[in-house]
Design a protein around this nucleic acid. Structure first.
Lengths: 332, 332
DNA sequence: TTGTATGCGTTATCAT
DNA sequence: ATGATAACGCATACAA
């Protein structure tokens, strides 16, 4: 095929060992020699074969970015893609490739073959079979996003605290009837959000309102469920907390179509601060966290783990902060 | 380290060659033997080493998904991520990994090493240095998304035709003053959209209005530019065509803040049919194309090219269709 | 249908 | 500082 390290060595009148050392920057090779070799590499257009390198060094230099959820649930969601950005940055610095895996089929392939050095697992739910396979395997894994167990290191937003802050804010604006629009209970995130909601309500001596459980973190589903909510009962609350901006978008659309004005008739607060939140009408008040940092942190943790570190902190929680916009009205 | 093909062979009382054949499903292995081997593999938890396999077979089984744009420009954009879904599906079926590359640094690494068998190049612009590197390299490459040159196979939406259809639709609704909000001219897409706009206007004997060139395909930039447009001159057109839904979102927000009602005072039509288009207020009329199919097509083309096929069709154009929603009003 | 032996391109060990 | 050479784990051409 192409041109090998052997060819470079021959052209430079040195051994393959020297070339290898020069490339990897390992000590034990003269400055002059190094320069000569680099020059020849450029001239000949030599491109190291990563398979061979991987075989010899017993590393793949690949990190798996995997989510058992449907591709679009993750890929189409700025919440995750923003995290990916952070990950991408530290992976690059450490010479790792990012292998995306969003289908069941590929994930099986990943678990059944030596193709990655470690895995960053996203949007996992407790009934995901991949979770048990990963536990059995010896593949270093970090779970990114809401998680409750202690078996894997985990970095995630403080869902519970975030929702509590949202409720707290609503209360400070005079609201007492506060309802939660949540995702499916199978998601760790939903359970944590529910927890935060209930605790916060209790802390303010308020009765938890009915909770709407949308089967997916999706605007369309949320829209449908909220329309049903409007039709089923007329006693709407004065405010709604959503465990995701996407859920909020659906609620806003449903409300709008039924002549329910936001925030005049109904206050609403989102969760996640997706870019689009500033482009709804009215703009959406929501909870924000540093996703980029969350991404870099998780990647760094994984790399540490791959390198044998024992990760003193198994869990990293990212605080959520309020972003005040137009969707919440002060109750007189 | 782990357990190798040799160990499996020993346990099964066969040769490594037989095990190898059994795994890859190559002909020449008895049914019984195959079953025995598969069982032992499962029992022992043997995981083939992909580096070794790649080295021996001279393939990496990796496909690079690369874009010279900032990570979020691509990742945060449903337009691209929807395409990724399609790609992901056919890559899986063909046992390929998807390596994402959204930073300059990693792309250099990709070009300077044998790490992928082929590349799917996104959102490229003519001044991207990667383009010339790729031309010099022998890496099979397909360009996905708007492109004008003939040097690489290319699959993309029919930007020019799409914009023309949008203008045509506006005209059919009685509009004569139609303005284009476009992306930066450095993007192939913008140039094609401009082309479609000018042709369509001419075809209807209409004067091309002033064109707003937003320096990035971004809602915030679009918002800022349209506010300036409103302040600079008072003669707003009756309708606006945007070359991206995101651009449209910015325009809608700016209009809304200035008391310009959509569609009563100003009709607007987007481009791309991003999921969020159905959640704006009013919902956005826009141009749609089958992104999933676009993705599968490009992946299939790349695989064909990798396998030595000579791709009879160098260019694949995807038709764009109108999705009628609420942002365009009929002029009496 | 199955086994033997060699090569894939690098890294790493041990010399020098 | 540099060289010779043995792994690394698998696929495959050739034999049997």
């Amino acid at each position: 095929m192409g041109i090998r390290i052997k060819d470079v060595a021959k052209a430079a009148n040195v051994s393959t060992a020297t070339v290898s050392r020069a490339i990897s920057g390992k000590p034990g090779v003269g400055v002059e020699t190094t320069e000569k070799i680099k020059k020849i590499i450029a001239e000949m257009g030599y491109r190291p074969n990563m398979s061979a390198r991987g075989l010899a060094s017993q590393q793949t230099h690949n990190i798996g970015i995997v989510s058992p959820r449907e591709g679009n649930t993750v890929l189409g969601n700025p919440f995750f893609t923003r995290i990916f950005e952070g990950i991408s940055n530290v992976l690059d610095k450490n010479q790792y490739n990012m292998i995306s895996s969003f289908t069941y089929q590929h994930q099986q392939y990943l678990v059944e073959n030596h193709v990655v050095d470690g895995i960053l697992l996203f949007a996992v739910r407790e009934d995901d079979s991949l979770l048990v396979q990963l536990r059995e395997s010896r593949i270093p894994t970090i779970i990114v996003g809401s998680y409750e167990e202690e078996d894997f290191p985990n970095v995630c937003p403080d869902d519970s605290g975030g929702i509590a802050s949202a409720v707290q804010y609503l209360v400070s604006k005079g609201h007492k009837e506060i309802e939660l629009v949540n995702g499916p209970k199978t998601a760790f995130k939903s359970r944590l959000c529910l927890e935060g909601y209930e605790q916060a309500m209790k802390a303010h001596s308020l009765d938890p309102h009915s909770i709407i459980e949308v089967p997916e973190y999706d605007s369309v589903a949320s829209y449908n469920h909220f329309i049903q909510r409007i039709n089923d009962a007329s006693n709407l609350p004065t405010a709604i907390v959503c465990s995701s901006d996407y859920l909020a978008f659906g609620v806003m659309k449903a409300a709008n179509e039924h002549g329910i004005r936001i925030p005049e008739d109904l206050s609403i607060i989102g969760f996640g601060d997706v870019p689009f939140s500033s482009f709804t009408n009215p703009t959406l008040t929501t909870m924000h966290t540093n996703l980029l940092k969350l991404g870099t942190t998780s990647a760094q943790m994984l790399i540490s783990k791959i390198n044998g570190s024992n990760l003193r902190k198994k869990k990293r929680l990212f605080q959520m902060d309020l972003v005040e916009r137009q969707s919440v009205k002060e109750l007189k």
